[in-house]
Design a protein around this nucleic acid. Structure first.
Lengths: 181, 181
DNA sequence: TGAGTGTAGTTGACAGGTCAACTGAACTGG
DNA sequence: CCAGTTCAGTTGACCTGTCAACTACACTCA
């Protein structure tokens, strides 16, 4: 018989909740990523970065801002942006008022790419996450998950920001023709 | 004004739920990993593998079984096991009845390591996840998250399996002395 | 004004994982 | 019984991200 302490023992429902939390996340993120790569050659992180830029003033953000939002290190962001610059989706712009900062700015190509990829990505989130719940249940989930550490930061959200701003509205995917006004 | 389609638009509560889901996961996993590395030199994946082995018959599993459970590729598992073998926590054992399979078997050192790390890990899950909820709420979460694709597989669970089997009971952390009967 | 400190970004070395190609062993049907 | 196929595992090439060290600039205060 094992010695157990009430305070640190995982059992029953707590176990279920935690397992489902971890497992579902692994599965869903993996599939979203696979879809996006297959159809648009973008990773979810790439997408996320393009989206942040699209929502930003003048479609540009300093590297450090991107690093905070994505929860990547500054060097991680440098390399990710290198890749997107290579694809022509982003360009680097230096800052007039502070020579230390360098902006990543979304190009027109990048914006177009984002719009196309948005269709895929939003549809994926619908299919893998949202369709499993009623409006009430989504409300419950939002409340419960919102209590966890890290939730509610400006970070680590992927397609989630669709609809956050007027700018983003133009990106909310119309899965049909993906038309934007 | 943007053109939007009802079926693929993310908004309001759905947005909140999805964001919290993603963000909280990133934050929690990152912190659990940091704790485990700092205190025991193990990643969460390492821990997970040791745990699967501890729960298995004769404390050993074929590589392919580990690869399924962890959601790593077979080559990923080969390399992860290489590392744990190097630390003396696991040893490779060939299979008598099928020369293709090679078992990973937990050593006594590995078992001891797992017991120690379990204290840290379970305490972390308590602190970062469980304490934010009542029993009822955990039940709700288990039900809701259990519906998502991937939940309920035998995969991607980390400390979660504490308590799944009699074997695992001996690993359920007593955060005090970590004593085991 | 200029020394010291803090901040933004990049770079080299490396860790951890994937994919594709391979080896060797085990089933299967003429 | 042996040719073809499938399966388990490893390996090489590569990708993505981290950490630590570094550059270059900006702020502060005597």
């Amino acid at each position: 018989m094992a010695v157990t302490s009430e305070s640190t023992r995982l059992e029953g429902t707590a176990l279920e909740a935690w397992r489902s939390y971890l497992q579902s996340h692994a599965g869903i993120v993996r599939e979203l990523d696979a879809d996006l790569i297959a159809q648009h050659g973008l990773t979810v992180r790439d997408y996320e970065v393009l989206l942040y830029l699209a929502q930003a003033e003048e479609r540009r953000l300093p590297m450090s801002a991107l690093s905070e939002r994505t929860m990547l290190t500054r060097s991680g962001i440098t390399r990710l942006i290198d890749g997107l610059v290579g694809q022509g989706l982003i360009e680097r712009v230096s800052c007039a008022s502070d020579a230390r900062v360098s902006y990543a700015r979304l190009t027109d190509t990048g914006y177009e790419k984002l719009r196309q990829a948005g269709c895929t990505h939003v549809a994926g989130i619908q299919r893998l996450f949202l369709t499993h719940y009623s409006a009430d249940e989504l409300e419950q989930l939002a409340v419960l998950l919102g209590r966890l550490p890290g939730a509610g930061l400006g970070a680590a959200c992927t397609a989630a920001d669709h609809g956050c701003t007027a700018e983003a509205d133009t990106l909310a995917a119309d899965s049909g023709g993906c038309s934007v006004s």
